[in-house]
Nucleic acid binder design. Structure first.
Lengths: 269, 269
DNA sequence: CGGCGCCTTGAGAGTAATCAACGATAGTGG
DNA sequence: CCACTATCGTTGATTACTCTCAAGGCGCCG
């Protein structure tokens, strides 16, 4: 993951990341849903603009703006968020590497929320028109895309449950389980360990908790030997127990059995 | 709205509601987004099956089932919900009259949530195939449908904000503002008054609050002269103040200015 | 008329927020 | 390269919001 400082990073030439043999994580994500032909993949990559590097805590789309293009996050953590008048904010969802924020044709009208980076991020654009053509000509991609959108909605619902009924410890456990699975899907987690470039404040804005309480909850999790969180990296020591605490059911992430040690999907493919 | 008891209602002949000159609220809702031709409307109504009546607290789609068809709620309140092992449940969103739960093609695989009635409901089915054809042949409907889906996602996000950052009073105020606007769109609210056939327990399951605290919060709202809630009917006395308390911004509901006394949309139509 | 579910009220406990201060860390500039 | 400073992480003390438990009343349906 990105480790350079903001100032350092923004000084580096953009094209540094353009074609570097790095696997395209959006491709990897879609392939976890449906097999793609090389022609599918080539077309998909043609739709994506030259990737650009953004510093941490930068807005990609501001509240009130219409999104002219779709976005793909190729590296780093971004998020949807809603800023309150009081200064506090609520994070609505994460855009992890491989995740997409598409300027859907129905996105006309102003947005009620913003999209911004949390860590430094490499982001490519996808013009609306090109995206529409892509879907038209590549049914596999269109199918995977719809599945992906469905997962996004289900994830938002999982967050509603998280905020509605769970305690601080349970919420955090659930978030960590979800993150680990999602990072696994795009190959960024190994041995129950993955990057987590968030401050405790941002975790609080995600979980509806104060930064102080996030801190104490993290300590409790460490004390129980559940996790380790340092150097912007999360390690889960006891995933089964963490899942049990969180009442975590990975079904909503639609991960195929081969990718996760969790319960098999009853799904039809 | 429906007032009959469950047993009474289920004994009544189904066809009682089939064609009664009652305006189709799904049509009304879509027309609030985009004008529809009479051919559009006829096609839409052809897709809908004979409406059926369901009692309160009945599952329309159970967790783990795949949805074979889409649903339209024509009368009554239904909801998406997630049942916890502990017995508590979280309501994820309401299906008000005119709202749709579509068996999207991407809905393959098992659901992580259920759909059930809250009050008695009249519900029609929409076969997947017929829906897909409808979208193909009626671009206006397809457009309005996409907008509708977008509103659903934005509403889920508004609920995340609600649960994440607001106090009990603020949450409830926000919910009531949203409900009133949504009911207004389909013509079921007049003079800031609309049906609300929910128990305090169900309000609690919506807002992440205990039934006891819901009760006390309602009393506080009444004491402040904000609302009246009796006989399954909600009346908002002071909508501006309620909106201010809730920090309510109706933008996410994409209601055109003519329908709401709230701030004008910057929207492009 | 009896019973069940919902609303209401009271008391007590607990979880999480707020306020405040200090230490650690990392990016900034000299 | 090092000092400076802002941000983040940590801890303690206090407050307060919300939950849980418990019991009574009311209304509706059988």
């Amino acid at each position: 993951m990105i480790t350079g400082s903001q100032a350092h990073a923004t000084k580096m030439p953009i094209h540094r990341w353009a074609h570097h043999g790095v696997p395209n994580l959006l491709v990897r994500k879609l392939e976890s849903i449906v097999p793609l032909s090389s022609s599918d993949i080539a077309a998909l990559e043609r739709v994506m603009s030259q990737p650009r590097l953004f510093g941490p805590h930068v807005d990609l789309i501001q509240e009130g703006e219409a999104a002219e293009t779709g976005l793909v996050v190729l590296e780093g953590f971004s998020c949807y968020y809603k800023q309150r008048q009081t200064g506090t904010r609520q994070i609505l969802g994460y855009l992890l590497p491989g995740d997409v924020c598409d300027g859907d044709a129905a996105d006309l009208g102003s947005r009620a929320h913003s999209v911004g980076t949390l860590s430094p991020c490499i982001v490519a654009q996808m013009p609306r028109r090109a995206l529409a053509d892509l879907m038209q000509q590549h049914p596999s991609i269109a199918y995977a895309w719809r599945r992906m959108k469905r997962i996004e909605v289900d994830t938002a619902w999982a967050w509603i449950v998280n905020l509605g009924v769970r305690s601080a410890l349970e919420r955090m456990a659930h978030l960590f389980c979800e993150l680990m699975i999602r990072m696994e899907v795009v190959g960024l987690a190994q041995g129950n360990s993955c990057p987590l470039p968030l401050t405790q404040i941002e975790l609080g804005q995600t979980l509806g908790l104060s930064n102080v309480h996030v801190n104490r909850t993290l300590q409790e999790m460490r004390r129980q030997g559940l996790i380790e969180l340092k150097g912007k990296s999360l390690r889960i020591f006891d995933l089964p127990r963490l899942s049990r605490i969180a009442e975590f059911d990975p079904g909503y992430l639609q991960v195929s059995t081969s990718m996760s040690e969790h319960k098999a999907l009853s799904g039809h493919e």
